[in-house]
Amino acid sequence: MSSITTLKYTLQLADNVLIMGQRLAAWCGKGPILEQDIALTNISLDQIGQARSLYQYAALIINNMPAADKAHLFNAPLLQEKINNQHTITEDDLAYLRDAWDFRNCLLVEQENGDWAYTVARSFFFDRFQYLLFTALQKSTDSTLAAIAEKSLKEVQYHIKWASEWVIRLGDGTDISKEKMQQALQARWEYTGELFAMNAIEQAAMQANIGVDVSSLQQAYQQQIEAIVNEAGLQMPTAAWMQTGGKNGVHTEHLGYMLAEMQYLQRAYPNMEW
């Protein structure tokens, strides 16, 4: 199996959790009550930790590749130059030196936090997907990816519990909380279709038995989401059109602003440490 496939697949998995974790981290100090502020930053920390394990693995793959194979990996000139100059690449290089079009995260995770209901809805849709994905990824023939999936899955179970309880609490709350939760579910649902639309990287990874056939997870996903939505007394959201693009590097405008903030320090002061 080609190491390029493993690399790209690993990066896509990493990008999803990094961007989701960075979004949730923006709630730090702004949560409605202290306990929920801490909840979101804890979930964020788990996700950024998962991203670190994945980026470390991706960096290892890059560093072990023959020079010819890695001459055109990324569009971002800063990172590609570093690779071409035979520098040892680290997890930080992959997080901080790639531009938006090099990121392969799904559109869902880069959407803005919005209000509490929007944040809950996005996590509710994403965490459920991660649960199914990591459960399947534990069977990957790539032992590193299987191990990261096994470890992450335990953490995702807390995340799902948190998001599902909030959907039920708001749906089953006041007229206003119900209306807001319903609105947020409806608004974010159009980003869920992309989760199950296989891109070329996922196809190649699946054929090499290292990746998951995400299209096969959709039915279980739909059922599990619907069970919670029903329990919350809400209507299952519908979408006439599902948005796609993020997994192929075509993002909404929100990602660029987020990366500008996240990457600022390494861009302005390269190799800065503290």
């Binding site: 306990e35 801490i38 804890n42 807390y158 948190w162 039920i168």
Partner: peptide, 28 residues
């Protein structure tokens, strides 16, 4: 793993009472 809205019954480490309640599943 715990089910929805389920919490572990925990004994207070100070007074040993079992009458305790969860504030948040996430801490420091």
């Amino acid at each position: 793993p715990l089910g929805l809205f389920e919490e572990d019954a925990v004994t207070c480490p100070k007074c040993k009472s079992v009458d305790t309640q969860l504030s948040s599943q996430f801490g420091a």
